[in-house]
């Protein structure tokens, strides 16, 4: 089942998240980790790009990294699912390949 993409940089620092979103396929998942979790917040300059993804691509965020940065679950963009480390492992296992966007 598709590719699991991980993004670990803030979308306000560089274009990595946008580039990643532009190279996804139906059935892929994007997991935001580390500073990448800033991309999961609603009402920002990039949240429109995220909402345009629709339901073809699943969006995830690593809860531990959200918590570490004090980002309240209520500020997350609609449709973004928070996962724990086990969830990260499950996502890696259920996809055909993992592509880490550095």
């Amino acid at each position: 089942m598709g590719t699991l993409h991980t993004v670990n940089k803030s979308p306000f620092q560089n274009q990595t998240l946008l580039s990643c979103l532009g190279h996804t396929h139906e059935g892929d998942a994007v997991l935001m980790i580390e500073d990448g979790v800033y991309g999961a917040v609603t009402g920002t300059a990039i949240s429109e790009a995220l909402s345009k993804m629709g339901s073809d691509v699943s969006l995830y965020v690593l809860g531990a990294d959200l918590a570490a940065r004090g980002i309240d679950a209520g500020r997350m963009a609609e449709g973004v699912i928070s996962v724990d480390y086990e969830g990260f492992v499950d996502l890696s296992a259920t996809h055909d390949r993992v592509q880490n966007w550095l």
Binding site: T3, H23, T24, H25, Q99, N100, L102
Partner: peptide, 18 residues
């Protein structure tokens, strides 16, 4: 094109990023 690049990426067994 970007769309074709997405196809190339989806067609791999292993993707290594730099």
């Amino acid at each position: 094109s970007r769309a074709e690049m997405a196809e190339v990426m989806a067609d791999q067994d292993v993707v290594l990023s730099f």
